[in-house]
Computed example of a mutant assay.
Amino acid sequence: MSKVKYIYDSEKLAFLKIKPKKGRKLGYFALFLLASALFGFLCFVILLNTTYFETPKDRILAREIENMRISYALLNKRVDQLNETMDNLEDRDNNVYRAYFNSSPVDEKKRKGESEGALSYKQLEGYDNSDLVINTTKRLDVISNQMVFQSKSLDEIIKLAKGKEKLMAAIPAIQPIKNEALKQMASGFGYRSDPFTKVRKFHKGMDFSARTGTPIYATGDGVVEKADASLSGYGNHIEIRHGFGYETLYAHLSKYKVRPGQRVKRGDVIGYVGSTGRSEAPHLHYEVYQNGKVVNPLNFYYGSISAKEYVLISQIANQENQSLD
């Protein structure tokens, strides 16, 4: 029950009852309703941002966002693993493969994809998660560039490997006469006594004493440059150009089994022992050239004889005796 209010009237010397104005109660009531509505709206907005009033659609969106966060974390972990794998591959490329083939290491800036004209990511800007998307995209682009570059590098290594195979096949690595066909190692590389003048002079090859008609073998892959008697004192001889700076010469042959321009493989029979030209007895005079300079053939017999045989031949070849040509 509302309180009754009075006012003192000094003229009438009495308390008079105050009558409320019409509509005031209605105004108070309206004000109350407005305040209640504002309070209710405020509470509604607050509750909308809580989990108490989530709709099924909100739950689905929340689940999708959480899945995206998990996927993003897994993607970045995978990118880290790819980076580690690429680093290991690049390390082997520079320090194992290229070191083996005596090739220069690759420029690290090129490896990391720091090429001219950086990629633009403007199309990824303006979204709520633009920083995350751009960062991940950049990392993936760097790895992509590295993979392309590494693929080209491995192609180059394959070429180097094939070149290495050709080099190994070209090196004159076997004896031109088989051990079982040898009578003896007549003379080695170095200063020897000339069989005709008895004067000490430099002997540019090795002499293999063998019966006339004994097969002579190409000591490395190559192309026959000469098969004639054009060099004075060498009689019938063969010159083979092996490539990579290697050449071999086989002299005093009785006959040929190859012709100029013919490609031969290591171990192919190219001719037969004889005593043509300036020769004292049937034998093969054999010379090896590397980059235009004559070298000791003894340094190349690693493909056909054992260590024990090599020591024996070395002892004989290094004796300063008389040559056969």
Score class of each variant (00 low, 15 high):
2 S>Q: 10
4 V>L: 04
11 E>I: 11
11 E>Y: 06
15 F>D: 10
16 L>A: 14
16 L>S: 09
17 K>D: 03
18 I>Y: 13
21 K>L: 14
23 G>L: 11
28 Y>K: 11
35 A>P: 01
36 S>D: 09
38 L>M: 14
38 L>V: 15
48 L>S: 14
48 L>Q: 02
55 T>A: 08
55 T>H: 13
58 D>I: 15
58 D>Q: 15
58 D>F: 05
61 L>V: 15
62 A>C: 10
64 E>Q: 05
65 I>Q: 05
69 R>M: 03
69 R>S: 08
69 R>P: 00
71 S>Y: 13
72 Y>Q: 02
74 L>G: 00
79 V>P: 01
79 V>N: 09
81 Q>K: 13
84 E>M: 01
84 E>H: 10
85 T>A: 15
85 T>G: 00
86 M>I: 05
88 N>M: 02
90 E>G: 04
91 D>E: 15
93 D>E: 12
95 N>Y: 03
98 R>Q: 11
99 A>L: 09
101 F>M: 01
102 N>K: 08
102 N>D: 14
104 S>W: 12
104 S>Q: 09
106 V>Q: 05
109 K>M: 10
111 R>F: 06
113 G>T: 11
114 E>S: 11
116 E>V: 11
117 G>I: 13
118 A>D: 09
123 Q>I: 09
123 Q>Y: 03
124 L>M: 15
125 E>R: 12
127 Y>W: 14
128 D>Q: 15
129 N>G: 06
131 D>K: 06
132 L>H: 02
134 I>A: 14
135 N>M: 04
136 T>C: 02
138 K>I: 10
142 V>K: 10
143 I>S: 07
144 S>F: 08
146 Q>R: 15
146 Q>S: 07
149 F>I: 11
154 L>M: 15
161 A>L: 12
162 K>I: 12
163 G>D: 12
166 K>Y: 03
167 L>P: 05
168 M>F: 04
170 A>W: 04
171 I>Q: 06
171 I>Y: 10
172 P>S: 04
174 I>R: 00
176 P>Y: 12
179 N>D: 04
180 E>R: 07
185 M>R: 08
188 G>W: 02
188 G>H: 06
189 F>E: 03
191 Y>D: 10
191 Y>P: 00
193 S>W: 06
195 P>F: 05
199 V>W: 02
199 V>D: 14
200 R>L: 14
202 F>H: 06
203 H>P: 02
206 M>H: 01
207 D>W: 03
209 S>Q: 13
210 A>L: 06
215 P>E: 08
217 Y>R: 08
220 G>I: 12
221 D>W: 00
222 G>A: 10
234 Y>M: 11
237 H>F: 03
237 H>N: 08
238 I>A: 05
244 F>K: 07
245 G>E: 10
247 E>H: 05
248 T>W: 05
250 Y>W: 01
250 Y>D: 06
252 H>I: 08
252 H>R: 07
260 P>S: 05
261 G>D: 11
262 Q>L: 01
263 R>I: 00
264 V>Y: 10
264 V>I: 07
270 I>T: 12
273 V>A: 01
274 G>Y: 02
275 S>A: 13
287 E>F: 00
288 V>W: 07
288 V>G: 04
291 N>G: 13
293 K>I: 11
294 V>R: 05
298 L>H: 04
299 N>R: 10
300 F>L: 13
301 Y>N: 12
301 Y>W: 13
303 G>T: 03
308 K>L: 05
309 E>M: 08
310 Y>F: 14
319 Q>M: 13
322 Q>L: 06
324 L>F: 07
325 D>T: 01
